[in-house]
């Protein structure tokens, strides 16, 4: 359920054509992006790159959702698994839909838009405490509570912490809120500095990021004021993003031709 109308709360699947002509319910043109990966609580039994590549295999399992979004979702969750508690605030607030457990969480989340929107609302409104900041001390514990996973210990805090940026940032819009709050809280320097060193240590994460970027994002919010742009995506899209907000929201310009085509 990657997109949500910020006006009426209606949700749309990734790749949904409905939202392209504005929200059918309220005609709103502001949407918030909510990637699948945040609902996904894959058991990180095999936190390797292979898990991400197996994402495409898994795409056949679910009744809904397209292969790309599924792959992205599973890849994102792999990243998050790798980094254990790093997704702190989001994992915590988005936990209700993931109660079902397992790979099917993506689908569960899609079928429970209400839970998801609450979770998102929480994530947006909550001010992330220092312990929730990626890299913060309390993260591993938070995550372990939610998803008692053996590999949390394997990945340990130190390598995992800096990558807290990744799952959040890969989702661009969604992760925005908590990250924004966190970084405006003064922790941005550590967030900004650490991923580079980390990336070189763990090339598989870099590959995953690359994969996600290529598949998905046109503008990735690394943190407020730091953006990575996928020029081909920006060019290929008929709609274009006319306004970014640091809470992860964005406005798109809907081409006239779309509304005209239905008439």
């Amino acid at each position: 359920m990657p997109h949500q109308c910020t006006n009426c709360g209606r949700t749309f699947d990734d790749g949904s054509k409905e939202m392209l002509s504005g929200c059918p319910d309220c005609s709103g043109t502001k949407f918030q992006f909510q990637p699948d990966g945040f609902d996904d609580a894959d058991p990180p039994s095999d936190p390797e790159l292979s898990e991400a590549s197996s994402g495409s295999d898994r795409s056949g399992d679910g009744p809904s959702g397209d292969a790309v979004s599924r792959t992205v979702g599973s890849a994102a969750s792999t990243v998050r698994d790798l980094v254990a508690g790093s997704a702190g605030p989001d994992a915590t607030s988005a936990s209700p839909p993931s109660d079902g457990g397992g790979d099917d969480d993506i689908i569960v989340a899609e079928s429970e838009p209400v839970d998801e929107s609450h979770a998102q609302a929480d994530a947006r409104s909550q001010v992330a405490g220092p312990d929730e900041v990626p890299g913060g001390p309390g993260l591993a514990a938070t995550d372990a509570d939610d998803e008692t996973q053996a590999s949390d210990e394997e990945t340990v805090d130190s390598p995992a912490e800096p990558d807290g940026v990744d799952p959040a940032a890969e989702s661009a819009g969604t992760a925005g809120p908590s990250e924004d709050d966190a970084s405006t809280g003064g922790s941005d320097r550590s967030v900004a500095d650490e991923p580079d060193t980390e990336r070189s240590d763990r090339p598989d994460l870099a590959q995953l990021r690359e994969e996600l970027n290529e598949q998905f994002e046109s503008i990735r919010v690394v943190e407020p004021g730091q953006y990575e742009l996928n020029l081909m995506e920006l060019y290929d899209r008929e709609e274009y993003i006319i306004a970014l907000q640091e809470d992860g929201r964005y406005s798109i310009q809907v081409p006239d031709t779309w509304s005209g085509a239905d008439v």
Partner: peptide
């Protein structure tokens, strides 16, 4: 600086859109 950065990003999106 953050605002300029955000506007610049929007500007790139706009430039790419114009190109298309």
């Amino acid at each position: 600086a953050v605002r300029r950065s955000r506007e610049a990003t929007e500007g790139v999106a706009e430039a790419m859109h114009w190109l298309r």
